[in-house]
Amino acid sequence: MTPYLGVLSLLLVALAVIGSVWAVHRLVTVTAQPLRSPPFLSGWPPSEHALSRFHARWYPATLLFLAFDVEMLFMYPWAVVVARVGLSAVVEMFLFLGVLFVAVVWAWREGALRWT
């Protein structure tokens, strides 16, 4: 638990910094009351709320990312044991990565990485 005490104390420092930015702001600003303003649209009033279903055209890449990212988790424990296990660990891991990368190449050829 002790090492996480350091993490916790840095978190507290971060919150203290944010809090003091706010406190100093309230002391020196021309008004502590926030200005209510419509969003900036080149000088025009908004004709609808911007929060909506946003068409993210790169969504196929998110699936690809998810697959590879889960695999990525194996890399950390693997990195620690490579020296002990030896060549077989390297061969196994890179065969696995190679197979995964074939899938990436396939997705690329299908146009999953282009979004215009």
């Binding site: 021309v30 926030p34 200005l35 419509p38 969003p39």
Partner: peptide, 30 residues
């Protein structure tokens, strides 16, 4: 920026907006 007032927009997602704004500094320190 300390002298400048804050600015809020209509129907803003205030709590999430705040988390996003403060989060970068927190992440850097962590």
């Amino acid at each position: 920026l300390l002298r400048q007032p804050r600015r809020v927009t209509p129907a803003a997602d205030a709590p999430l907006w705040r988390v996003g704004r403060g989060g970068l500094l927190v992440a850097a320190l962590l």
